[in-house]
Design a protein around this nucleic acid. Sequence first.
DNA 1: GTCTATAGCCGGATAGAC
DNA 2: GTCTATCCGGCTATAGAC
Lengths: 217, 217
Amino acid sequence: MTGATPGGRRRETRDDGVARTRAALLAAAADVFAERGYDGASVDEIARAAGVSVGSIYSRFGSKQDLFRALMTGHLEGDLHRVRSGMDAGPEQALAELETVLLETARSRPATLLDAETWAVAMRTPAMRAAVADHHRRVRDEAAAMVARGRAAAGVDLGVPDDEVATAMIALFHGLVREYRLGVPGEAPPDLYSRMVHALATGLAALAADGGPPGEP
Amino acid sequence: MTGATPGGRRRETRDDGVARTRAALLAAAADVFAERGYDGASVDEIARAAGVSVGSIYSRFGSKQDLFRALMTGHLEGDLHRVRSGMDAGPEQALAELETVLLETARSRPATLLDAETWAVAMRTPAMRAAVADHHRRVRDEAAAMVARGRAAAGVDLGVPDDEVATAMIALFHGLVREYRLGVPGEAPPDLYSRMVHALATGLAALAADGGPPGEP
DNA sequence: GTCTATAGCCGGATAGAC
DNA sequence: GTCTATCCGGCTATAGAC
């Protein structure tokens, strides 16, 4: 990824300043947008945080909105790419990578705030909403595939479609992050999530076994 | 609630314009803050939506921030009051009222957006953060009391503290609302929440029965 | 491509008549 | 208490030198 360009058509190997500025700008934008919110963030503050001037921002990205869109798109694609490459690497890696992505987001204040801001902006901007919804669907599909594998390995039937279980797992995770970040007094232990997912799986399997296995009258 | 004032010290019975303006202002503020976000909302637009002028807003509330704070506080207290009065009314009412409050918020786009905005503002404003966290704790405590009652009625042991179960239930709810609102394709059925809570309870009970009941070596 | 300087606009908040 | 008119500061975006 960061190695030399194979053909060397144009030498982009060195930090040529251009890519460097772009990266610094996106990093600064992530911090400022997270801390101030989309409307609260000013282009000037982002420029100062990145160590460049406002003119540079408008030459690379056309507007404040386009800058945010580029930032958001990059993050979403990055997350998805990581989850998928874990999926290709092996069965163990997939779960580990998804968990890592989720936990990294959860542990980082900027990442959590940016995630929330992305949702808020998406809710108010039809085009972004479609893009974000599509990304969520893809992540859910990856999670559903993991559920399917785990279910097959354990030889149990959960009685409900895999995406529904995946949706519930992801929703529970995001909901818990929301509570943790707020710092509700008497906060639950860090392993609450995994214990609850375990209980959920156990309960689904038990209900499916009791209720009606497939093929019964 | 809306009846005549019992002593009639000052006749506030009629819509005296003052309370009326205040109510209209808060209602308008709720809509505009929800749709535009805190920073995106302008005092002017709120005034227009309420049918009053900007001067009126600054005479009743001191600033834009105070208006938002008043709105937020009113909503939080209103929700909590409803849940608690359901609690007093009877065991069945408590669950019904909590569900109603949650579902009303989930079904209404402005309510959902305002809820998210409240969280975001709270995360960036220490004083508000404490207030919102305290409110969340109270709601969780009510939910935990309901879990305790249901657990006792069914005669089962869940193996984990009631607040942890309550936290998980609330987190799952908020996470699902987030997904539903985004409109992720292939969206899960509306009864997903109740089925997952049921499965969670079943699983916890099963694990507690297997693992180690209280008092066993 | 990147800078500085500035245009043009809009937002929060206030003053003062009624 | 409510209005209209206005101030002032900060914001996005652009122009033009280098």
